[in-house]
């Protein structure tokens, strides 16, 4: 088992700088330079994973936030409530061995289930870079599907970063 806790600027301000999921990965920079700010602003809550409560070395992290997918049908607008896995990364020594899946089912999914008991959650989404085969493999292995080209085209016209939308229904969970 890994120890998990919320990112804390008081406790983790040094260890975030040592996290490495890959050479010059933007995810490393996100954790060390951005995650604290987004926690404070409540734009994204980041959880870190260590070997134990006493240890500082961050072995992985993920950031969750709420989101919505607006759709218009016959003049009627709806906002589909979803949870977004905004960021997820494992230390390079932990990659490619099914540990990301373990983190999803053991830590991420139970949190979403708790939230879904209280407020409406229709699905889970993530944005993935088209050439990130490892991330694509991870998300598809747990059930995510890549949105169709019609959807990707819409996102391409108003995106923050070129990436593909992946999503999975939260209605049909078999765990």
């Amino acid at each position: 088992m890994l120890h998990e806790e919320k990112l804390s600027s008081e406790k983790h301000f040094q260890s975030v700088g040592d996290f490495c999921c890959g050479a010059d990965s933007p995810l490393d920079t996100f954790l060390s330079c951005q995650a604290f700010k987004y926690d404070e602003q409540r734009y994204g809550i980041t959880y870190i994973l260590t070997a134990s409560e006493e240890e500082d070395e961050i072995l992985g992290f993920y950031t969750l936030k709420t989101s919505g997918i607006q759709v218009e049908e016959d003049g009627e607008y709806n906002s589909i409530p979803v949870i977004e896995i905004a960021r997820i990364a494992m230390n390079h020594s932990m990659q490619g061995q099914g540990i990301g899946k373990y983190v999803f089912y053991t830590y991420i999914l139970p949190k979403i289930e708790k939230v879904a008991d209280i407020v409406a959650v229709k699905g889970i989404i993530a944005f993935v870079e088209p050439d990130d085969e490892q991330a694509i493999g991870f998300y598809t292995s747990v059930g995510f599907q890549k949105a169709t080209e019609d959807v990707q085209k819409e996102i391409e016209d108003s995106f923050n970063e070129k990436c593909d939308l992946y999503m999975v229904s939260f209605d049909n969970v078999e765990v």
Binding site: P26, T29, F30, C33, Q34, Y38, Y43, G44, T63, K65, S67, I69, Q70, V71, E72, E73, Y77, I80, E84, A86, R87, L109, K122, G123, I124, F127, E129, V142, G143, F144, Q145, A147, T148, D150, V151, K153, E154, I155, D157, S158, F159, N160, E161, C163, L165, M167, V168, S169, F170, D171, N172, V173, E174, V175
Partner: peptide, 28 residues
Amino acid sequence: MAVSMAVIPTLRGKAANSVLETLSTSKI
């Protein structure tokens, strides 16, 4: 460096239908 790597504009037509379809049929 934004929290989300992208945002989704309002979807219509085929795009909207496909999202609704995926969120009905996909499964964890």
